[in-house]
Simulated scan of single mutants.
Amino acid sequence: MRVTFLGTSGAIPTTQRNTSSIFVNREGDYHLFDCGEGTQRQMMRYGTGFAVDHLFVTHLHGDHVLGIPGLLQTFDFNDREEPVAIHTPAGTRGNVKQLIEANGTTPSYPVRINEVSAGDTVLDRPEYEIRAIATDHRCASVGYVLAEDDRKGEFDREKAEEELGIPPGPKYSKLHRGEPVEHDGRTIEPEEVVGPARPGRTFVYTGDTLPTESVVEASEGADLLVHDATFAEDRKERAKATAHSTAKEAADVARQAGVRTLALTHVSTRYAGQAEKLAGEARERFDGEAFVAEDGMERHVQFPDGE
Results as ranks from 00 to 15, higher is better:
S9L: 13
Q16W: 12
T19Y: 06
V24F: 04
E37R: 12
Q40E: 15
Q40H: 13
T48I: 08
V52F: 09
H54W: 02
L55C: 10
D63Q: 07
V65P: 00
L66S: 08
G70A: 13
F75M: 15
F75H: 15
F77A: 14
N78L: 15
N78G: 00
D79Y: 13
D79R: 14
R80H: 06
V84K: 07
P89K: 10
G91M: 07
E101L: 14
G104H: 13
S108F: 01
Y109Q: 06
P110R: 05
N114K: 09
I130D: 00
H137W: 15
R138M: 12
R138H: 13
L146A: 08
E148F: 00
E154Q: 05
R157N: 03
E158F: 07
P167D: 03
P168N: 05
P168R: 09
P170S: 05
E182T: 11
E182F: 08
H183Q: 07
G185I: 11
A197V: 07
T202H: 01
G207Q: 06
A218C: 10
S219K: 08
A222R: 14
V226S: 14
R235M: 13
E237M: 14
K240F: 09
A243Y: 14
H244N: 15
K248N: 01
A250W: 02
A251Y: 01
A257S: 13
V259H: 00
R260H: 02
L262V: 06
A263W: 05
K277C: 09
A279V: 15
E294D: 13
D295I: 08
D295S: 10
P304Q: 04
G306N: 10
